[in-house]
Design a binder for these strands. Structure first.
Lengths: 114, 114
DNA sequence: ATCAACCGCAACCGACCGGTTGCATAACTT
DNA sequence: AAGTTATGCAACCGGTCGGTTGCGGTTGAT
């Protein structure tokens, strides 16, 4: 299997946006907040942050564009909640890399011993 | 357990740089390349990329700063290889969020049924 | 001793990012 | 109907990011 085929198999290349979305402290905190506390509105999330509501909105939209989070309208507020599928996708990538790494080290060891 | 305590427990807050480092297509490809193909020099990696050697160097240093990768000098070349510990750290974060999410949904369901 | 290969350092550039402010709109509440 | 609450939209700003070019320094090969 070629490396290109491997990278196509594991997460295509839409995996990077997922990691990019998680690569920000504020956004990580939002994920933990939504994960542990269940669904929240924008105002609720902004109330517990030093940042502005609009900043929180932008961060949520970044997470949403990566598919990590979804929003439902409820009256005049917008409720955000976690979408766990994409988390698994990211986890599969990490698992795949470390698995490949172990295999590569095994081949190297084998090669040295021959 | 407070959300603050939770986020302190899971990956402190040095987890974000790990995800940020993985949030780039080129860097993801480098991880897959190093993972599947074993250690490589900068020139080797740059040879299979449309980018410049210096661009590859910068990307490797970003990955290195996040602890995802390490370099050893061998003669006049610099060999890079994967450091699997940090991968596990990132994976723990993802597992924790989805676990919390399931728990939160469970509590909501329970609350509705009462 | 020369020459080529591999690398490090630095400056530069356009584009994107995180965050803010200001104003407008829609939905409850009283 | 008036006031308040929750949000959307747009412009703006400094800083970081991804990438390049140019040059100098080591290490290895001939």
């Amino acid at each position: 299997m070629t490396p290109a085929a491997t990278s196509r198999q594991v997460g295509g290349h839409h995996t990077a946006p997922i990691f990019a979305a998680l690569g920000d402290e504020t956004r990580l905190a939002l994920m933990l907040r939504l994960g542990s506390g269940g669904p929240h509105s924008i105002a609720q999330l902004a109330a517990e942050s030093p940042l502005t509501r609009q900043a929180i909105t932008k961060h949520l939209e970044v997470l949403g564009a990566a598919g990590l989070v979804r929003s439902d309208r409820r009256g005049r507020e917008r409720i955000w909640n976690v979408q766990p599928d994409r988390l698994d996708e990211a986890r599969q990538f990490l698992a795949e890399v470390s698995r490949q790494w172990d295999a590569a080290l095994g081949r190297l060891k084998h090669f040295v011993e021959e």
